[in-house]
Amino acid sequence: MTSSTTWAQEALLPADLGAGLLRADLGPGVVAGFTTRHGGVSPAPWASLDLGTSTGDEEARVRRNREQVATWVGAPVAFATQVHGEAVLTLGAAERAEWESVAAPLSAGEADGLVTAEAALGLGVLVADCVPVLLADPVARVVGAAHAGRRGLVLGVVDRVVDAMLARGARVGDLRAAVGPAVCGGCYEVPHALREEVSAVVPATWATTDRGTPGLDLPAGVVAQLSARDVPSARVDRCTLTDPDLFSHRRATAAGTVAGRQAGVVVLA
């Protein structure tokens, strides 16, 4: 099996599918990537590709931004109402028709994981410091996406998505994953007790920030959980808190403003 280290050197490419979509290579017949904050229609403070419905941005602008992403990936993209849990929704032909309609819904339901074997139906997870995780089995043609925040990571949302993909015919030996931009361990400062609590469940999250204070490295935790399932992964090593091209809830809160939401998106072409 290809190691996650070797694969990571080749799988994430700087090329984009649009002005604001960083491409991830998850195999033939799979289109995947992570949006940045660029390429949309929203004004400040959401400027400009805000994809979230809970940020205070106007719904019409969010819909136009989502349509832009759908154009980039060549398919409508379904999103869930994320609740920092472990629930996974499996979507199919009925949902594709629903999301293709003029009156497309804003949410497929409450969940932090999405899975489909349906071609031309994109799956999207929204983030602004949490970890977006995209998965694919290009042989069995099954894809999944997970929103892995601190609570979801502890609850095992990444494992639940892998389980749901296996139930749809994916094989561990053919699965691969891309771990998107998120707040890094050097920046994600937490109370000492919280670091102890989370790292007791996911040891790889233990971190010390650049300031020497207790921290959590959520992307490292995701990579470790994937490795434990023998799923090779590639990681986008960009920190949302320090990268101005990405939305960050923590950065916006510190500045007294609000952050938009970027997304990880995957679709069977």
Rank of each mutant, 00 (worst) to 15 (best):
S4V: 09
Q9L: 14
E10Q: 09
P14Y: 13
D25E: 14
P28D: 15
V31I: 11
G40H: 02
P43H: 02
P43K: 09
A44C: 06
W46L: 01
A47L: 02
S48W: 08
S48H: 10
D50F: 00
T53S: 08
N65G: 03
N65F: 05
Q68Y: 14
A70Y: 10
W72G: 00
V73R: 00
P76G: 04
A78M: 02
A78P: 02
R96W: 06
E98G: 03
P105L: 08
L106H: 12
T116Y: 05
E118W: 09
E118K: 05
D129S: 12
V131I: 09
L134M: 11
V139W: 03
A140N: 07
R141I: 03
V143I: 15
A145W: 05
G149K: 05
R150G: 15
L155F: 12
D159E: 14
R160Y: 01
V162C: 06
V162G: 04
V162S: 01
D163C: 03
R171N: 06
R171F: 07
R176W: 10
A178K: 11
G185M: 12
E189P: 00
V190E: 03
A193H: 12
V198C: 12
T208I: 15
R211M: 15
G212N: 06
L246E: 02
F247W: 04
R250A: 13
A254F: 05
T257D: 13
V265W: 01
V266H: 06
A269N: 11
